[in-house]
Simulated assay, not measured.
Amino acid sequence: MHTKSRTNDRPVAIDRRVARTRALLKQALVELIPERGFAAITVEEICARANVGRSTFYTHYEDKEALRQATMEDHLQKIGRARGSQHEGDQAFAFSLPMFEHALEFGPLHRALIADRRDAIHDQLRDKVRKAVRCELAGRTPDGIPDQIAVEFLTGAFLALLGWWVESGYPLQPVELDDHFQKLATAGLPLTGSEQATSQAHA
């Protein structure tokens, strides 16, 4: 029985080592982006920062682009889970507070995004916000305003506010900043449908 138990535990131990190695590589990438920019970072630099060998790196990721993709997917999934746990009817735009909370919890990642706005890693975040806004605006934009115009308006406003907040050292708590965003967003783009009454109640 004892031998069987040890054998059954081995995959768990291996999985933990894999998870730890991948976490180190992702953290190294996040730390290096503000310093070097993603395009200039080499696999060697990532390995040195993570204290991981090149052969180990390539065991887990095909190249630094695969590592970038995995890093962003991890964080976007965290945001998605946080968003799903909230009651969307409580506010006009349910995506915003989870993203503000994530930016506070994972400051280095968001500072990296701000430092390299022209990089693909920032484009991924913009696409995530754009998709969330498009989903939440479906059928709710005021008459005469094309959906895409509304989506780009709110996406740009949100990312500009997020960038200012991070660069300013988080002068407000996430819930305070979100309250301001909700009021400004619903004032600038009054929503149609039953959600409009909810958003006006928060103003």
Score class of each variant (00 low, 15 high):
S199Y: 05
L113T: 04
A120K: 05
S96L: 07
H202R: 14
A50D: 03
N8R: 12
T59F: 12
R6T: 06
A70H: 02
D74Q: 07
D9F: 13
T3R: 12
A82I: 00
F153T: 08
A19T: 07
A157I: 06
F93A: 08
A92I: 14
G107P: 04
R36G: 07
A50I: 08
E152N: 12
L24T: 05
A28C: 02
T21G: 01
G188P: 05
L184T: 06
D90L: 15
M99G: 05
K131I: 09
A70W: 03
L113C: 06
Q86P: 00
R134A: 12
A132C: 10
K64L: 11
A94R: 12
L24C: 04
I149K: 03
Q196M: 14
A157K: 07
R17F: 02
E105C: 10
G156E: 09
W164K: 15
D127T: 11
M99P: 03
F95N: 03
D15E: 11
I33H: 01
G156C: 09
G80L: 01
Q91L: 14
R54Q: 05
E44C: 10
V52E: 04
E62G: 11
A13L: 14
A92N: 07
E44K: 15
F106L: 11
L25R: 00
R117F: 07
D143A: 14
T198V: 15
E101D: 11
Q200W: 15
A138L: 08
E136D: 04
K78M: 08
H2K: 11
Q200C: 15
H202V: 10
G80M: 01
G188H: 07
E176N: 07
V18G: 04
E136Q: 12
R36T: 03
L32A: 04
K78A: 10
E167Y: 08
G144Q: 03
A40G: 05
E195H: 10
G163Q: 11
S5A: 15
V151K: 02
H180S: 14
D74E: 07
P146S: 11
A103F: 05
F100R: 13
F100P: 01
R49A: 15
Q196T: 14
V133E: 00
